[in-house]
Nucleic acid binder design. Sequence first.
DNA 1: TTAGGGTTAG
Length: 658
Amino acid sequence: MWVLQIPQFVRHVPSQSHLCYTSHVSSRVPVSFVSLNPSANLINDINSNNNQLIQSLCKGGNLKQALHLLCCEPNPTQQTFEHLIYSCAQKNSLSYGLDVHRCLVDSGFDQDPFLATKLINMYYELGSIDRARKVFDETRERTIYVWNALFRALAMVGHGKELLDLYIQMNWIGTPSDRFTYTYVLKACVVSELSVCPLRKGKEIHAHILRHGYEANIHVMTTLLDVYAKFGSVSYANSVFCAMPTKNFVSWSAMIACFAKNEMPMKALELFQLMMFEACNSVPNSVTMVNVLQACAGLAALEQGKLIHGYILRRQLDSILPVLNALITMYGRCGEILMGQRVFDNMKKRDVVSWNSLISIYGMHGFGKKAIQIFENMIHQGVSPSYISFITVLGACSHAGLVEEGKILFESMLSKYRIHPGMEHYACMVDLLGRANRLGEAIKLIEDMHFEPGPTVWGSLLGSCRIHCNVELAERASTVLFELEPRNAGNYVLLADIYAEAKLWSEAKSVMKLLEARGLQKLPGCSWIEVKRKVYSFVSVDEHNPQIEEIHALLVKLSNEMKAQGYVPQTNVVLYDLDEEEKERIVLGHSEKLAVAFGLINTAKGETIRIRKNLRLCEDCHAVTKFISKFANREILVRDVNRFHHFRDGVCSCGDYW
DNA sequence: TTAGGGTTAG
């Protein structure tokens, strides 16, 4: 006869052992291998059988029964608890996890560092970081596994400062770090809210790594590379990459990502080519492809992007969500909105990022209503909008001047979707109102913000002041901006632009002097064009292109044609009080016009010209490109720093609202 | 026992 017998098997269980048997589980266990009056050997066999049964129940996912059985098992083993802890995390059950933890304490395993490690992992996975920390605090023998488990948890939830404080403590008591410790500590630098400069902290950890001989560890060094990349220290990242004795596809991908994300997309593509030709053991995977697609998007290099798309198809990486999402963005940012839509339509599975990507590309192209329609469709399909969804859709409203629609969406964020508007959303709203010349409403919104407005918000206001030439408000915005980000040259240039537009030449001059005095430089205008899979770059008044004379001659010819039709060069964009002829010469040499002329010369008749520019398109370039699109009967696509302009037959898709 | 690079905005 098989019956439940508990007390007679309780041997070593600590004083609170009764707790073990008064857990939330039922006191009646349906199945047990425990028999009446067994011999000592039999008891051992039975215990072993029970432990094995608990473990197999865990493996089978039957956690409830495993817990039932644990309640009548007087000698649970370390392995049994390991299985139970693992199952609780797998089942995502905090209440079972707490039960297992309670039984573990009752069984005297609470000071077992192996199980403490597992408990910390479990609590992290169950989202209870405080309990993970408590386990750590209560564990007296802290092996490196125990430290690393907590470090991992803290790094993953973004508690960088706590992690780094503990790391100091660990060093102080003399526990040596291992290769895993360094990866977590490095990650903490990125996610920390440190009082000291996090990059400096990263360099300190770099020194620790070198001192302790981990410079050859591929994981540690790739993480270090990535830390430098995330701080925008491309040269440091590159030095780490070059110094790595062995590299694999992860290290190559991390360096490609570093270039792609730090506005060096050309370098990213060059490195990818090198990886393909030189690093035979480093086959790119889906992550590499995402990074490369980002680089193509950054360059607006459609032909390269298409080649990468082909490679993705050949390698059968086209079912991976981030790859497809990156493809949507790549096509959109290269001006091929319909190709982006096609990728989206053919996706078997979509996530919120896929929807955001599509909303974003329509918004960037000025199709605000379509972007809102996609946003609504997403909600209709049961996908909850994210924080970023609202940035994209509000941005779309801004590009299209959809003020009322934007205001309704902004209001709905909290009331309908329980998303608190953040800095980026306020920046979008200020941009939306400001562009629409509702500067009073924009400033009111800033004044009513329930947190301190940051540089993005004031920057949006200053940008709007530039469009509507509002000197007074521009001075107010720039006073704050010079305080918040004194090293951002763009703000000085914007204010000088506004003064120049208002013909306040001495004020414009003093702002530019201030810029120089602070050791800053105006970001030179630069435009890129891809012709026959090669990307050409132009800076203003460029003299280096071998075809420069031909380009100039064409521009002068076009300018004369335009003048004959009433065009007057808009030289007010020139910041200095020069004579009109000189100003005209400068404006005619703007990088974007040089790139358009180069495109006209080097592409076939009827072929679309695609340009990318690093700044906002100036009024004169906009007017000239409109004319060229009609005169030369060419479709011209220009992506400036904010959005797309489709020039066709003398008209721009932005409706002159940008 | 634990680890590195990824998609959307501005």
